[in-house]
């Protein structure tokens, strides 16, 4: 498999200055190493505040990393010259969660879709409109006229427009940041199918970010689990699904509520405690405050990602 993206020790800190002169550092992403192969879908799962969306934005060069390097096809994204950056921008795209705030309410669908082409000086006006129509057809929203505004469309239709915008520059790689979290189940299924179909038709590579493990596991070829700015487990989907090792991954699986009622007594198994504040993460293993198996060492030493088998890696002291 060919490597498309490699992250080396990527960190993104946000510094918050308080009025009283104090400083708080929020370590949203804290030392992430990751490889994304061409053609795969890497699912990135974690709870809110774990840094998964920040990681997506760092990858797109929307936020400069505090430390670390991002390679795209072997080229260091952080040190790329301006003219080449512009070319790379065509290859990497993003789809956002909220189908409402991700489309400019004052622009028509036509303007939204042709503006990326305009930015890159592609085609004549007529060709751009043709391309926009073509792309809309590709995402299953064929429109005869492009002069309608986003508010005239439903959530699912808007998400299709958002996907079309990401596709219009013929990218290779798309970051999907919770693309279905704001949608209803029946619409979610349509969008998930579309995302899957496009991957096959257009040979796309995805980073699929979500808090919903059932969606992640449906779509991804590999899964990375993130907790408080760190990757705690990563591996092939079947390995993670069949044999989750990190206690946090296990907890995430057990907190999926299956759509069938329990036999006998109602019982819901879940983690205890709250997600710690990322400005002040626990020492040692960040998960030790909620881990049912925590040992003294977990409080002091931060575990490193270790290979369990093949590509399956876990950061946990309990794995030898």
């Amino acid at each position: 498999m060919e490597e498309l993206i490699r992250l080396e020790n990527v960190k993104k800190y946000f510094v918050k200055k308080s009025v009283l002169g104090g400083k708080k550092v929020l370590k949203a992403v804290d030392g992430v190493n990751l490889r994304i192969e061409r053609g795969e879908t890497l699912g990135l799962v974690g709870e809110s505040g774990c840094g998964k969306s920040t990681l997506g934005q760092v990858l797109l060069n929307l936020l400069p990393p505090t430390d670390g390097t991002i390679y795209y096809e072997g080229k260091d994204l952080t040190k790329i010259p301006k003219n080449e950056e512009q070319k790379l921008r065509r290859k990497i795209q993003i789809v956002f969660q909220d189908p409402y705030s991700s489309l400019d309410p004052r622009m028509t669908v036509g303007a939204i879709l042709t503006s990326p082409l305009k930015i890159h000086n592609i085609g004549t006006k007529k060709e751009r409109i043709e391309k926009a129509k073509e792309t809309l057809a590709k995402v299953g929203l064929p429109l005869p006229r492009l002069d309608r505004f986003p508010h005239e469309f439903s959530g699912g239709q808007r998400q299709r427009i958002g996907i079309a915008r990401a596709l219009i520059l013929d990218p290779e790689f798309i970051v999907l940041d919770e693309p279905t979290s704001a949608l209803d189940v029946s619409v979610q299924a349509q969008i998930l199918n579309l995302i899957r179909k496009l991957r096959e038709e257009l040979n796309l590579t995805y980073l699929f970010i979500s808090h919903d493990l059932s969606v992640i596991k449906y779509l991804s070829t590999r899964i990375a689990v993130m907790y408080l700015g760190r990757i705690v487990e990563i591996g092939k989907t079947e390995d993670i699904v069949k044999n989750p090792i990190h206690p946090y991954t296990k907890a995430l699986f057990s907190s999926i509520l299956p759509p069938h009622p329990p036999d006998g007594e109602k019982k819901i198994t879940t983690l205890e405690g709250d997600v710690p504040n990322p400005t002040n993460p626990p020492s040692g293993c960040r998960f030790h405050t909620r881990c049912p198996y925590a040992k003294p060492i977990c409080r002091e030493v931060e575990p490193k990602l270790k290979t369990v088998q093949g590509e399956h890696k876990v950061a946990c002291h309990l794995v030898i």
Binding site: Q57, L60, N61, L62, E85, Q86, R89, R90, I92, Q93, I94, F96, Q97, D98, S101, S102, L103, D104, R106, M107, S115, P116, I119, H120, G162, R165, A166, L169
Partner: peptide, 22 residues
């Protein structure tokens, strides 16, 4: 900070373009 502005930035839209268009 709105996603539609981020999307345009991700697609290579320059600040001038973003200011006048969005």
């Amino acid at each position: 900070e709105k996603p539609f502005v981020l999307a345009t930035r991700a697609q290579g839209g320059k600040p001038l373009y973003i200011i006048f268009r969005h």
